[in-house]
């Protein structure tokens, strides 16, 4: 096994970007996931700017227009909503807000949660006692209730929603990171670094963080969908994103009364949420393998086989 791996390891060094691209190409699912996410990202950035007018233009004659009907123009290919606005255009425009809220909340929660988790796991002082209690406090409070109270007091803007959703998701990262750090810090190679005199900063960033990053990223991708749906329930309660602003989650909840007569109102945004989450998940799965030197050969074999 060892011998085989050795002989198969590529000796020549290629440029970093091309290596990564070929590793990505080796996992076809991950490759298409990446392409899909790129499209979503483009929609999120360019959509509101290009299609804002189309997406908000009401056309009562096209109310709940069925999908796959080109007679009302290409924008209506996915059908129209309850006010006759083209769903395709709305989906593209909504990508902007959805991504901003979901990515913002997840990243913020990940950043704060894992930083606190690192401190709680690595320090042996009072912080190690206090920080996990903080997570307990947040977790013991129903997250939706917390969101309702905060958004009732503050005004429900995108920024505040990100903040509230981030706070409710912090404990997940905090606890996972802390548990992983507690385990990794006792590993022999961390002690070896200590014996060499490595400063705490180096031990954390060079030895501990790379080991726990894949776990955190995997949780983050799963959290992505959770946050999108949480945001939609806030919108449903009227304290989330306010119309005429739109998000996918809001579109799902707006389409709910029409589920029996016009399924496409909720279906398309729902599909967009699922595909985005799935893509993120596939990509994070690929990343876990690609970042791990002991696993990377799986992709390298594939890359060679497929060209």
């Amino acid at each position: 096994m060892t011998q085989a791996t050795e002989s198969a390891a590529p000796e020549k060094e290629r440029s970093g970007f091309r290596t990564w691209l070929s590793l990505l190409w080796a996992d076809k699912l991950a490759f298409f996931a990446a392409v899909f996410l790129l499209i979503v990202l483009l929609c999120a950035i360019l959509g509101p700017w290009l299609l804002d007018g189309v997406a908000t233009k009401q056309n009562l004659r096209g109310r709940n227009a069925p999908p796959f009907d080109l007679s009302r123009g290409f924008m209506m290919i996915l059908g129209g909503d309850q006010l006759g606005r083209p769903l395709l255009a709305r989906l593209i425009v909504a990508a902007g807000n959805t991504m901003a809220v979901a990515a913002g909340a997840v990243m913020l929660a990940m950043l704060i949660g894992s930083t606190l988790g690192l401190i709680a796991g690595y320090s042996r002082g009072r912080m190690a006692e206090l920080i996990p209690r903080l997570a307990d406090v947040i977790m013991s409070f129903p997250s939706l209730l917390l969101a309702v109270i905060v958004l009732y007091m503050l005004d429900p803007s995108v920024g505040n929603i990100i903040l509230v959703l981030a706070i409710t998701r912090i404990p997940v990262y905090l606890r996972t990171t802390r548990a992983e750090v507690l385990e990794v810090r006792e590993r022999m190679f961390v002690q070896a670094a200590t014996v060499m005199g490595a400063p705490t900063r180096r031990i954390i960033f060079r030895h501990i963080l790379p080991m726990i990053l894949p776990t955190i990223l995997t949780i983050a991708t799963l959290d992505f969908s959770f946050v999108m749906l949480a945001e939609s329930s806030l919108s449903f309660l009227g304290i989330g994103i306010q119309p005429p602003e739109i998000t996918w989650g809001l579109m799902v909840s707006q389409g709910r009364p029409y589920l029996t007569s016009a399924w496409w109102l909720s279906f398309w945004p729902g599909l967009a949420i699922i595909l985005t989450t799935l893509s993120l998940n596939l990509l994070s799965n690929w990343m876990r393998v690609a970042l791990d030197p002991t696993q990377r050969w799986r992709l390298e074999i594939g890359a060679r086989k497929h060209g």
Binding site: R187, M188, F189, Q191, A192, A193, M196, G197, A198, P199, R202, R206, H207, P210, M211, L291, D292, P293, T294
Partner: peptide, 24 residues
């Protein structure tokens, strides 16, 4: 250390492992 499998960081190359001494 006793077990070289555990005392070497699996995510670092041999070059990184050895040169870490001089980075520190």
């Amino acid at each position: 250390f006793q077990d070289p499998t555990q005392s070497l960081n699996p995510r670092m190359t041999v070059y990184q492992i050895i040169s870490e001494a001089w980075a520190i």
